[in-house]
Design a protein around this nucleic acid. Structure first.
Lengths: 349, 349
DNA sequence: GTTAGCACTCAAAGCCAATGAGTGCTAATT
DNA sequence: AATTAGCACTCATTGGCTTTGAGTGCTAAC
């Protein structure tokens, strides 16, 4: 939970009012009026007093009014204050833990599948859209490359990266794949590519290698191209999404849900969205904090997952600004921890 | 183009009126009135005569009226008659051909990628959602299985099926993978699994094999399980989608777009949707012909793609019933042919 | 068979008043 | 100084009402 920008201190009563408005608005989606607050919550004062407080909170920018004769809703600043200072901190309920663990198979060795399952689980349990990045490539290196001849001219190339990712390419050679070609590729890869970081595999590097091959270059070109392509993909962070159609259910996104879906489907914008300090906490990006037109009334709740003690990826959910933060944060935190643990398991065999 | 159910013959003038209404409604989305038809189209008669004809067409069930004081729109039956008898048959325009070919790389050896690209291309060019099945497993057989030791306890298993599909699984063994384990698996697979059809790989079969292994069974269990799982997936038809967010743009689906997206994302319902006669033609399923609540005002335009002369998969698009059939059909037909050709290329190396 | 003419229908748009939730302000009270 | 009762005010919403105009169906004449 990062601290908000300006550290205005509110009186305890103002805080209680803001918290109650936030929680009521989150629950009902309707603006909250002074009368309701007076009745419902146990403030020992009249609605007029509450109105005065609300007016002050509006003046301070924590609340806003859809129109004169409506109640108040928390502004973005109000939500920020709420999540930073007022919201209860909970652990996931036993039933949530059960739900998450029963969906995620701790024995899954496939990083890609672990991530996909995590996204699906989060989307389902939160009712929001879920996004999860593949482990970052920074600091990783190519562990090995393998070739699987598929018969005839086709070979499958598998690139294993130390961050747990596998990238495979099917590659059609100019002629039937021969033992010599495979052998040559293994030699090239072993001496020039393995142990390097994926982002070191530049076109230039591959061309240098190709040039040194002389008349074999032509034969090897498709494999080298496939390898370069796979390495390039391995060097960049990818994003898996789930539950995009959940976004259609929120009135808040009416008409904009399509743009939101497209935004999340887009790799680079989704990565940018999740990027945040890696301090092991759950982070909340409210509305315009995301610096993104499509997300003005949306929030992102995200957390990094750590493998080997280093935060190597991020997962999160995207939903309306009036989402149930208190309920959702524990789910995100727990899922992130579990993903980290599962990938850790894979790293250490 | 399949023939409609009842073969009512309409007078030539009625046909011209129906065709003009269909095309105008497709283009504008607005009900079409007698006055417009009289002005615009070159009928040598007055609006009153056209009104009489329209009344007759309504009586016959080819047209309907949103309300008394509105023009007419084609009913489902009207659209059916239009696509069966009235619509022009076109070839894709050179520019469409160029667009499709420049998006689809004829040298791609990866079936999965070919399919994904085809779906994206179709979605983009038609503005509808695109769906494409993987090649059917019927009649296919397992060509080979390969193991790629990934270090430590992890192995990647690759299953090559004769229909061009590859299925891979990462499998975590109980102990470090040894040469003996790999060798044993190759022996088992070679004698018991390769050359079989994927749907023959039942749990029973795998258990029989396991039982025959004696004390090695425990060690081999994860690999056998992964193999069975991969084979099961290979035996069933999968579906790739693209452009689901296009559906949100259509007024016709307002409020139902989410359900439609979910329907297409669901493997079995999407397959059911595309299932049709395999006679090499483009097929059009209008509204309720799809026997599916979510699709009452939607149409599916689909075509099979053939590999080796046999129709082994289907692709199609889903859009509103008032879609531009004349423009879209050539695209679907051409894309299907191209997918077939590309997969053919792969089969014959 | 065609058409001019006309009465009719009905969605859409605009207008108006009533309703009521909720506020802001003021003056009295504690 | 804080609280509150009271009241005037605002404004979205609703429903009723009318107007408008597109489009029809029907009939009688051509």
């Amino acid at each position: 939970m990062q601290k908000g920008g300006d550290s205005v201190e509110l009186s305890e009563r103002k805080e209680r009012i803001l918290a109650t408005i936030a929680e009521t608005y989150i629950a009902t989606g309707e603006p909250v009026g002074s009368k309701f607050l007076c009745m419902r919550a146990g403030f020992g004062v009249s609605s007029a007093t509450i109105r005065n407080e609300m007016a002050a909170l509006t003046e301070l920018g924590f609340l806003e009014q859809p129109h004169t004769s409506a109640g108040r809703i928390p502004s973005q600043k109000g939500f920020r204050y709420y999540v930073d200072h007022l919201m209860g901190q909970y652990d996931p309920s036993p039933v949530d833990i059960f739900r998450i663990r029963s969906r995620m198979d701790f024995n899954e060795g496939d990083t890609q599948r672990v991530l996909a399952t995590a996204a699906n689980t989060l989307a389902e349990l939160t009712g929001c859209a879920a996004v999860i990045t593949t482990p970052f490539a920074a600091g990783s290196r190519i562990m090995r490359t393998d070739l699987v001849p598929l018969g005839g001219k086709n070979v499958m190339m598998v690139l294993s990266v130390s961050n747990g990712m596998l990238k495979s390419r099917i590659c059609r050679c100019e002629s039937d794949v021969s033992y010599e070609m495979l052998d040559l590729f293994y030699k090239i890869a072993g001496s020039g590519f393995v142990q390097r970081s994926p982002d070191e595999i530049t076109t230039a590097l591959v061309q240098t290698v190709a040039a040194s091959l002389g008349d074999k270059a032509f034969e090897m070109a498709p494999m080298l191209a496939a390898f370069a392509d796979a390495a390039k993909e391995a060097a960049s962070t990818d994003v898996l999404t789930a539950g995009l159609s959940n976004l259609l259910r929120f009135r808040d996104f009416e008409g904009r849900a399509g743009a939101l879906q497209d935004l999340l489907r887009n790799r680079s914008s989704a990565v940018r969205l999740l990027t945040t300090q890696s301090d092991g906490n759950v982070h909340i990006h409210l509305g315009t904090e995301n610096r993104c037109r499509e997300l003005v009334n949306a929030s992102v709740v995200c957390a990094g997952y750590s493998v080997d003690g280093r935060e190597t990826g991020v997962l999160g959910i995207v939903g309306p600004m009036r989402m149930d933060y208190a309920g959702v944060i524990p789910l995100v935190r727990y899922t992130a921890a579990l993903v980290g643990a599962m990938l850790d398991e894979n790293m250490h065999n």
